[in-house]
């Protein structure tokens, strides 16, 4: 019994220590100094063009982040590059649903 529980604990520890490589919350945009960033409000138009209803715009690390609902009501979190305002990656409740080709941050 005790050996079994130790084994379970060891397995759990191993699993959990292996996962940071798998998932890390921080998206990195490598966007350089903030002085060169475009205004975050410009994302409102971008979101409008996508057909999204914006709930919140914010700076997240070195990225711009948009919380929005799509036309079909999907709740999404989209990350944009603060200099190019390119859409880099989009998550739906933690699941990735879009990633710009070649973007690895």
């Amino acid at each position: 019994m005790i050996r079994k529980s130790l084994a379970v604990m060891a397995a759990t520890a191993a699993l959990l220590s292996a996962s940071p490589a798998l998932a890390d919350g921080d998206v990195q945009c490598n966007s350089g100094p903030q002085a060169k960033w475009q205004k975050i409000d410009k994302l409102k138009k971008k979101a409008w063009l996508e057909g999204w209803k914006v709930q919140k715009l914010q700076v997240e690390g070195d990225c711009y982040e948009v919380y929005a609902q799509t036309e079909s009501g999907m709740a999404i979190e989209a990350f944009f590059h603060p200099v190019t305002l390119e859409k880099l990656v989009v998550f739906r409740r933690g699941s990735e649903i879009y990633r710009k080709q070649g973007f690895t941050g």
Binding site: S72, G73, A75, R92, R93, G94, S95
Partner: peptide, 18 residues
């Protein structure tokens, strides 16, 4: 309140995080 309607709640029910 955040989702605002039943349909989108049902639509994302099957996602692992939900």
């Amino acid at each position: 309140i955040d989702m605002g309607a039943l349909a989108p709640i049902i639509a994302e029910f099957a996602l692992p995080a939900i």
